[in-house]
Simulated assay, not measured.
Amino acid sequence: MTVRKLYLGPLTDNRRWDSVDIRPDDVIVVTPPKCGTTWMQTIVALLFSGDPEVETELSVKMPWVDIRLREMPEVAERLAAMTTRRSMKSHTPMDGLPLHDRAHYICVFRHPLDAHFSYRKHVRNIPMSFFDTWYPEDDADGITFRRFLDGGAEGFDGDAMPLAHILRHYEAATALANRPNVSLFHYADMTRDLAGTFDKLAALLGISHPPHVLDRLVQTATFDNMKARAERYAPSGGKGFMKSDSEFFHSGTSGKWVGKLTDKELSAYDEIMDAHLSPKDRAWLEFGSQGHSPA
């Protein structure tokens, strides 16, 4: 039996997975925060149902197992009662998850700086004050980015999503990428070719829909449609958890850091990335299969 790493923070606890009986046809979406988790979950929900109007209700029907805000016995009971194909979400790196031989793990990544700046917006939109020391609203001294670079991959730091946590996710996923049931996707590739993402994922999951149905599913999962219907597609949308459901889908763009970091900050980021990743791995983690910033 493989020993799993412990990831325990104020928001998440990966030991909660011990209560889940994983099934061979389960689909588990595994990502660092703000890397396209909700987008990928929505694509999975649409492929499962074949219905562009399906009520996704991700927080209930495709739960974030790690999060400590819901009682785990209730989550486990709800999952056990499901008679249709299931999907779940995790922000725990793959080395902290139970690895089933046949359940499919969909790992999604995004340029670390884009994920970081998206997370800055996100913490201002949720009622969780324990992030305030890492993400102060008035940050003239650049505390937030320093902690992004200096933070560790586990514990409180892990829940605050520093660069080390993103790198741990990537290293743990690539270590298992030769398995047929572990697949890596990139936010930039999803943005460039959403229809291709649907095709690839459908093939991996053994799902088939007529072309005209698939076209409607792709249109449903566009950023503009999901933002316009944010109460439907945001996690816990319409329930008042976030200050603004629409702000959850703030822009969906890349290059959010351009012009917002000093040369010194960018050099410090480059040094860490180059120390941990080969040029090929760094190019993929930042820009996906294209391997470089779009012109």
Rank of each mutant, 00 (worst) to 15 (best):
T42S: 14
T42Q: 13
I43M: 06
I43D: 01
I43W: 03
A45H: 10
A45F: 08
L47E: 08
L47S: 02
F48N: 13
S49Q: 06
S49M: 02
G50N: 02
D51Y: 01
D51G: 06
E53K: 13
E53W: 04
E53R: 15
V54K: 07
E55I: 12
E55G: 11
T56I: 14
L58R: 11
S59D: 02
S59W: 00
V60N: 11
V60S: 10
V60D: 11
V60K: 13
V60A: 12
K61N: 08
K61A: 04
M62S: 15
P63S: 04
P63I: 04
V65D: 05
I67A: 12
I67F: 11
I67L: 12
L69C: 15
R70A: 14
R70Q: 13
E71S: 13
M72R: 12
P73A: 12
P73M: 08
E74V: 12
E74D: 15
E74A: 14
V75Q: 05
V75E: 05
A76H: 09
A76D: 03
E77C: 11
R78W: 14
L79Y: 07
A80Y: 14
A81H: 07
M82C: 13
M82N: 09
R85V: 06
R85L: 04
R85E: 08
R86H: 09
R86E: 05
S87Q: 07
K89R: 14
K89Q: 15
H91Q: 15
H91V: 14
H91T: 12
H91I: 15
T92S: 02
T92D: 01
T92A: 07
P93D: 09
P93C: 04
P93Q: 02
M94G: 01
D95Q: 05
D95V: 06
D95R: 04
G96Y: 02
L97K: 02
P98H: 14
H100I: 05
H100W: 03
D101K: 13
D101I: 09
D101Y: 10
R102D: 15
R102V: 06
H104K: 10
H104Q: 11
C107K: 06
C107F: 03
C107L: 05
V108C: 00
V108K: 00
F109S: 08
F109C: 07
F109E: 07
R110F: 00
H111P: 03
H111S: 09
P112N: 07
P112I: 01
L113Q: 03
H116A: 09
F117E: 01
S118G: 11
Y119L: 05
R120H: 01
R120M: 03
H122N: 07
H122G: 00
V123Y: 01
V123W: 03
R124T: 10
I126Y: 01
I126W: 04
P127A: 14
P127T: 11
M128W: 12
M128S: 11
S129L: 10
S129T: 12
S129F: 00
F130P: 05
F130V: 11
F130L: 08
F131Q: 10
T133D: 15
